[in-house]
Amino acid sequence: MSTPLFWLGVGCVLWLLGLHGLLTLRNAVRRIIAINLMGSGVFLVMVALAIRERPGDPVLVALVVTGLVVAVSATALALRLSGQLARARKGDA
């Protein structure tokens, strides 16, 4: 089994693991972690495709670098929203 194929498989497994977590977990912070794991799975697939030839494909790597910053922005916003939601619930109770 070639190296790209192996890491492609790992990326897919990681994505599915995140999906399972997203669908079964209830806690908002855990769900955000699950989405992050799915994102990491996608990045892993992209980098596995980038190393098909040597030296690696710079376009895919650059896209993943961009994706990382977008992922952390989205995570920060999602965590703020979940915190706000928790506070609103506490206020109701």
Partner: peptide, 23 residues
């Protein structure tokens, strides 16, 4: 390991460091 050193640097700072602090 996969030879994407740019990503390794970004991931260590962003993925592990900042996301951890946020969480």
């Amino acid at each position: 390991r996969l030879g994407a050193v740019d990503l390794a640097l970004a991931e260590a700072a962003i993925g592990a460091g900042l996301t951890g602090a946020l969480l």
